[in-house]
Design a protein around this nucleic acid. Structure first.
Lengths: 202, 202
DNA sequence: TGCAAAAATGACCGATCAGTCAGTTTGATT
DNA sequence: AATCAAACTGACTGATCGGTCATTTTTGCA
């Protein structure tokens, strides 16, 4: 599709436009209920054109997911690397994720709704996505292990602690997204971080 | 479909058989990928017969979900009512849910995979299911509020605390189901309960 | 046993949709 | 202006599947 460098760039731009449209539509209707023509329309192109840039509906879906997952992973890593203490790390990790998902609700809706569902069905769907998820947790676990070695937190199993942080974070995010129940500002995040800190302190 | 009491009972038995088949198939393939004929075959009947007992694929799905959700709700209530202290309540709540889902993995797969996804899409899907979920959390919140009033736990927002317990429990359940990562026995449940206790203690 | 009503069935219908491809438009080059 | 290839398009196809209904089988009763 693109041979000269000029062509190549315009091709990439179009791919991005398609992905952005896909995020919007998938987020609104879910994978199964989304019709490829809707994505094309949202992107302002014909259905046939979409198939020039992606080989299938599923590949569009995965490409959108991958891009965002990588960005989130990068931001999480940066946050953890900059943290000066385990408390900082914990707070940053939770806040970065909550903020990212707030700013990319489309992605979140897809990620939470379909990706987790597909995992649950046993189908791995994408080894890379799976690895990214694991890596995020492993990073946090390492951080806890180090803090435990320094005696700053109790000698808990760092992996289990990281998983628990993940679970709590996911809850925060999902609740924000649904906007069910009473509206929650920052207070719920602060509460959750505080609870986790207390649970980990010596 | 059933007029005499004799008829009525056989009708209920058949409905149950269909629901059990539906659970198996929905759990294996998800809602969208499940074909009504698969459910009928699993139940050992023809497709037309299924439509004599349920008006649509979606109603079969919801009926299966409702039945299990009610049972789980009942067991949760009983566990909380029997608890003699907030620690007991916390442990029981988590354990009852983990055990129930372990014993009803089919239900769990449906519940976790599709129901949550559908909620996330904004579609309420079933007001009753939604209410049951809320009720479970409210019950736990009440329990925490009482304990806080008695000074047994810190003066936390009981609703937020209950939500956090929910999130952690869900994580335990999902991990058990996926059987990804290292195999976890009872240790993760015990760990989670212990962490939550520490976070709540004065 | 005979018979009518109830229950069960699966071929069939209409709608949907992912993916294709023959034809059209665009724009770069001579 | 003429040419041509790359980009684009949307009508079309084949397959799928939820739900129906004319027909067959079973049941309960006289």
């Amino acid at each position: 599709m693109g041979s000269s460098p000029r062509r190549k760039e315009s091709c990439e731009r179009k791919k991005d436009a398609i992905l952005q449209a896909a995020r919007t539509v998938f987020a609104r209707k879910g994978f199964a209920a989304t019709v490829v023509e809707d994505i094309a329309e949202e992107a302002g192109i014909g259905k046939g054109t979409l198939y020039l840039y992606f080989p299938s509906k599923e590949q569009v879906y995965l490409a959108a997911l991958h891009e965002d997952a990588h960005t989130l992973d990068g931001e999480s890593r940066r946050a953890l690397a900059e943290a000066r203490s385990w408390r900082d790390a914990l707070r940053s990790y939770v806040e970065v994720r909550v903020r990212y998902f707030e700013a990319h609700q489309d992605f979140l809706r897809i990620y939470m709704t379909e990706f987790r569902g597909m995992c649950m069905q046993g189908r791995p769907l994408s080894a890379e996505l799976y690895r990214l998820a694991q890596d995020g947790e492993a990073l946090l676990a390492q951080c806890f292990a180090a803090a435990a070695a320094r005696g700053e937190i109790r000698a808990v199993d760092p992996e289990l602690a990281a998983l628990m942080v993940s679970d709590v974070t996911r809850g925060l995010i999902e609740r924000r997204l649904r906007a069910w129940g009473r509206p929650l500002g920052e207070s719920d995040t602060a509460f959750a971080v505080d609870m986790l800190r207390r649970a980990l302190e010596p």
